[in-house]
């Protein structure tokens, strides 16, 4: 399996995406900086507390990387079907389930890792900025910091599951644009929910969607041997 994953990475030159990931993180820093300074200029309190800051961070980060993941998903799965290169893949002495699993694992691991490390990085940045420049009202307790780490793991997991949902629409239409558009739609939907609800209800919705994504992934792996090309 590791070998299959490596071959997929090599085949689609996925390593080059590190620039994109780095660029996105730079964007997040600028975004948070802008939110902070614009609010400062209008003499409002930008972030009431650390929890608020980290909620905004995780929403933006997971939205970005779910869309990013849909681009990879389109490339790895949808385009292979559209270009019929999947025909070639399925003439190899490797079970189709394994080939499909390798592709979906890449998408999920990519989303999980990027969301996790970006949220941790940005939360850490806010913490350091607060310690040095006192950007938040009050101090950040160690407990809050630990909580934010746990939340990051949760959010990264939810995002990883969510990232597979566009597969359903993408495979039905065999279209990469449908895949990417559906991920944007999904992200808009989940973030509009998160504006009005508490963390726990947001988490319930996210976890259910994540499970839905995993079920979609599982079904497409299961069906891959039965479907004609």
């Amino acid at each position: 399996m590791i070998k299959l994953i490596n071959l997929e990475i090599k085949k689609f030159k996925l390593i080059k995406y590190w620039k994109g990931v780095l660029g996105a993180n730079l964007g997040f820093v600028i975004f948070i900086g802008m939110v902070y300074f614009l609010n400062k200029v209008e003499e409002e309190i930008p972030f009431e507390n650390f929890e608020m800051a980290s909620t905004i961070i995780s929403a933006v980060v997971s939205a970005t990387f779910i869309i990013f993941a849909s681009v990879i998903l389109a490339k790895l799965v949808i385009d292979e079907y559209k270009n019929k290169s999947i025909d070639l893949m399925f003439t190899y002495p490797i079970s189709r389930k394994k080939i499909m699993s390798a592709k979906l694992i890449i998408v999920m691991v990519f989303t999980f890792m990027t969301v996790l490390f970006s949220t941790l990085f940005l939360n850490g940045l806010v913490y350091i900025m607060d310690v040095t420049f006192d950007i938040l009202p009050g101090d950040i307790s160690i407990q809050e910091l630990i909580n934010s780490v746990w939340k990051s793991f949760f959010i990264a997991f939810a995002a990883a599951g969510l990232s597979l949902i566009p597969l359903l629409i993408g495979m039905l239409r065999k279209s990469s644009s449908a895949t990417i558009v559906s991920s944007i739609f999904l992200v808009t939907l989940t973030s509009s929910v998160s504006n009005n609800f508490t963390f726990s209800s947001v988490m319930t919705v996210s976890i259910s969607l994540a499970l839905l994504g995993i079920i979609i992934g599982w079904l497409s792996i299961r069906n891959v041997e039965k479907t004609d090309l």
């Binding site: 270009n83 019929k84 003439t91 490797i94």
Partner: peptide
């Protein structure tokens, strides 16, 4: 059968027209 893929190790093919990873 739907799971006989080991056999494919002993076969080479071009079906319809050859498909490649164009950027490689």
């Amino acid at each position: 059968t739907s799971s006989s893929y080991e056999i494919l190790k002993r076969m080479g093919s071009i079906i319809e027209y050859p498909i490649f990873y164009d950027q490689l």
